[in-house]
Design a protein around this nucleic acid. Structure first.
Length: 107
DNA sequence: CCGCTGACCCTAG
DNA sequence: ACTAGGGCCAGCG
């Protein structure tokens, strides 16, 4: 991964999340080099909330919970989008066992 | 420069 | 499943 701004790195990773998969703030943070700063990842996404070129709905916390749903147009939108991609839910959280995608670091 | 804030994460109880 | 505390990095007033 080329050396870019923090935001660029986050977007670069998030855009690589395949259809029907989800990733976590922690893994993304690790992928861009900020091992213990998963907060920054969500923060970066917040700055581009509404940008359809970035599938921010595929990013959840380590527990599979949709922590960012409140930043969407409606609280239900995030889940609707994920279910539309075939992602399974267990109660209020995503079935991580089945849909977790770990970002791979490559140029 | 200081202090607060945050779409998180870990550990402990 | 719950709460509480500490750490984390970047922006902003």
């Amino acid at each position: 991964m080329p050396d870019k701004d923090f935001f660029e790195k986050v977007f670069w990773i998030v855009r690589q999340i395949p259809y029907g998969k989800v990733s976590t703030y922690g893994h993304i943070g690790e992928a861009i080099g900020l091992k213990s700063s998963a907060r920054m990842v969500g923060w970066a996404l917040n700055s581009v909330a509404g940008d359809l070129s970035i599938p921010c709905h595929r990013v959840v916390n380590r527990n599979g919970e949709l922590t960012g749903k409140r930043y969407f147009a409606t609280p239900d939108m995030m889940r609707e989008m994920l279910e539309a991609e075939g992602i399974e839910f267990i109660g209020e959280h995503v079935n991580m066992e089945k849909h977790l995608w770990v970002p791979s670091i490559k140029e």
